[in-house]
């Protein structure tokens, strides 16, 4: 993706790993030597509601941590799609979770939308919670904003402190997502 500054939105409901996906991406940026800055929703907003993470990635110093119009998005459920789709820059690549968002009902918003059956693939892998990383894989393939190896390294760091087994299933999830595009 030939843009110098990525302003990315990740949105879904609480528990879909929206913030985790943002963290993985941030670690990947460190691995790739890029600047990154992530803001996640917090407090009452994420208790059972819509969770979102906004991530700026740049080769230059990142000033404003506030993103007004994202130019890349990963949207994991229908309420988030409705809530955020109009905030995106025209032409932005958008990865949507077609397991939970009816692709038939998506109108042409002058956006570059692709559907990934992420939740269903995750269920087949035996862990519904890796849908976020499947989508991350698809997003990386689609946009090429980071080397896949950087994301894999990022995942190692993101999952290092928790259960190591989680890393392996997420690595597989990433590969599946990457190959889906």
């Amino acid at each position: 993706m030939p843009i110098t500054e990525i302003n990315m939105l990740i949105a879904g409901f609480g528990g879909q790993g929206v913030i985790l996906a943002g963290n993985v991406l941030a670690y990947a940026c460190i691995d790739a030597g890029k600047n990154v800055c992530a803001m996640a929703s917090y407090g009452a907003e994420v208790r059972g509601g819509t969770a979102k993470a906004l991530i700026s990635i740049s080769d230059y110093e990142i000033d404003s941590p506030i993103i007004e119009r994202p130019n890349l998005a990963m949207i994991m459920n229908a309420p988030s799609y409705i809530k955020y789709i109009d905030t995106l820059e025209p032409g932005s690549p958008v990865i949507v979770n077609s397991s939970l968002i009816d692709m038939g009902k998506i109108e042409n918003k002058k956006l570059d939308i692709i559907g990934i059956d992420a939740t269903n693939f995750a269920i087949r892998m035996g862990n519904i919670r890796v849908a976020n990383v499947i989508m991350l894989g698809a997003m990386i393939k689609k946009t090429n904003i980071l080397e896949p190896q950087s994301v894999v390294n990022g995942m190692k760091r993101a999952f290092y402190k928790g259960k190591k087994g989680l890393y392996y299933i997420n690595e597989s999830a990433f590969t599946i997502g990457y190959d889906l595009v």
Partner: peptide, 16 residues
Amino acid sequence: MAELNITESQDKRVLM
């Protein structure tokens, strides 16, 4: 299960 080895990144920044 194989040991999860973290390859040290050149970039020593931490994320928090």
